[in-house]
Nucleic acid binder design. Structure first.
Length: 109
DNA sequence: TACTTGACAAAAG
DNA sequence: CCTTTTGCCAAGT
């Protein structure tokens, strides 16, 4: 598919994240082939708020498993969503992050 | 076209 | 694990 925008690609991958799993911005960026654009992934998420269908941005965290984007969700919306999927969150950080981590480059293979 | 901004990542102390 | 510094790159102005 030509015309594929960077943002659109990001949304596609994020929507592929299985429920109850999480991934990092860098993992998505790497999967897209733009490893250095990890920041752009998060930046794209900012626009995901108006994207349709909605993107499960709450399943995307930084490399530390920290909910770096909960601020943009407003309040503790992000935490609630994660807890709702069976993911334990403490101190803005995903517990068992290493276990819940979902790598598109490996799992989605 | 140039400068600024970011929901990041990796390295160093 | 924490803090600071550096690099990254696309979008908006």
């Amino acid at each position: 598919m030509d015309k594929s925008n960077f943002y659109d690609d990001v949304y596609q991958v994020v929507r592929l994240i299985p429920k109850g799993r999480v991934t990092s911005y860098g993992a998505i960026a790497e999967y897209l082939g733009t490893k250095g654009s990890s920041r752009m992934v998060g930046y794209a998420m900012g626009a995901s708020g108006t994207a349709q269908p909605p993107v499960p941005a709450h399943r995307v965290v930084n490399r530390n498993g920290l909910l770096s984007g909960k601020i943009h969700f407003g309040g503790d919306t992000m935490e609630q969503l994660l807890e709702s999927e069976g993911i334990s969150v403490e101190d803005n950080q995903v517990q068992n992050f290493k276990q819940l981590f979902w790598d598109p480059s490996a799992e989605l293979l």
